[in-house]
Design a binder for these strands. Structure first.
Lengths: 200, 200
DNA sequence: TTATTCAATGAACATCGTTCAAACCAAAAG
DNA sequence: CTTTTGGTTTGAACGATGTTCATTGAATAA
């Protein structure tokens, strides 16, 4: 019996994540409703709380998937041009990031909208995945300037990632501007070529 | 009577913004409660809706103040060093931005957390103030490279502002990293000197 | 003084996340 | 086969939330 329960729980868990993911993709993370979830999943509201003790946990689970896909997209984008000079690789990665965000703005935005109650800590995989993403960026950067120590590389990595993130974030913020895609690409290219010039 | 009413409304309006501002500063914009507001303002909940037809409107009013203070801080910071070379002025402005955000993280964050219902448009002053902020940045940038046309300057301005914003945003995101202040300053300086090098 | 007008009031409403006593089910025990 | 038992699933109920609107009340006009 215990086995059966575990299986059903796991199935329900996956189903819930599927439904929540679709909902966030289409209507944004603020549109998640327990009751709507329960109806679509064909279970009672209480059953959801057997799997996710709080709603933010479900959000976090969706974010886990999103993060994984993001990492994959960036990785495959850069691996297809492994021989290109460091700057070009940085640009490829940054534009993969941009494209990912533009393709699924709601899911991407949800990554930064996790409700932060006092008790819920940041999961380990969150920080691990993030540092992996940083590691991918650090590669070309240290190639660009082999004389820079690890501390300096870390600083530049964070600065660069944050900058690209800022461009994407404000660029996709419909209410402020609504910058067309090709201009965002131009900004990123300008940013990264400047970076490269400043780091050689 | 009409005069009296108008006056009382205006007073209540100011009082509400005061209270909401203090609340957001201390507990974040998500902690705003109509009932708590009414109690502190000494009025009924309904009275609030005579002044702000929806809660997001009050948020927006607080943001208006915040934006004004932000603009002032950046402007006075740079005007105190009007003779410095363009790069230095950019750094001064960016660090004023950083310091402003770090001093009042909740109020600053609230600028980007406005609930966006379909009907509520972005107020005019929002875009106007933003373009004013952009204009301040554009100055040093076009000094740095007089050959760049207005379109190119606009692109660089947005890219630079967004980049600084990204560094501050992710740096203050406690849950991801919690980057110490001096490292954020170092990132900004690195970013802007690279920018300058790439633009000359 | 009386009538009129409009703002202020706060109980009521709809909706949200969350809880928990009761119903239920499947396996073990009698 | 029937009964007991342990755990899960259920959905009504709870406490908060933003928002509304019939009622109250006070100030002006007649």
């Amino acid at each position: 019996m215990a086995r059966d329960t575990k299986k059903r729980r796991a199935e329900l868990r996956e189903r819930l994540i599927d439904i929540a993911e679709a909902q966030i993709r289409e209507e944004g993370s603020a549109s998640l409703r327990v009751r709507a979830l329960a109806e679509k999943a064909g279970c009672a509201v209480g059953a959801i709380y057997n799997v996710f003790s709080e709603m933010p946990g479900l959000q976090l689970a969706v974010n886990g998937r999103t993060f994984a896909r993001l990492g994959q997209r960036v990785t495959t984008a850069v691996s297809s041009r492994a021989e290109a000079p460091p700057v070009e690789r940085l640009i490829v990665m940054a534009e993969a990031y941009l494209k990912f965000a533009a393709d699924d703005p709601n899911l991407w935005r949800a990554l930064f909208e996790v409700e932060m109650t006092a008790d819920s800590e940041v999961p380990d995989w969150y920080l691990k995945d993030l540092s992996q993403l940083f590691a991918i960026i650090a590669g070309p950067l240290s190639e660009l300037d082999p004389s820079a120590g690890p501390d300096e590389i870390d600083l530049r990595t964070r600065a660069l990632f944050s900058s690209v993130h800022g461009i994407v974030f404000l660029g996709l913020e419909r209410r402020i501007s609504g910058v067309p895609m090709h201009r965002m690409e131009a900004m990123i290219e300008y940013l990264l070529r400047s970076f490269a010039k400043g780091s050689e």
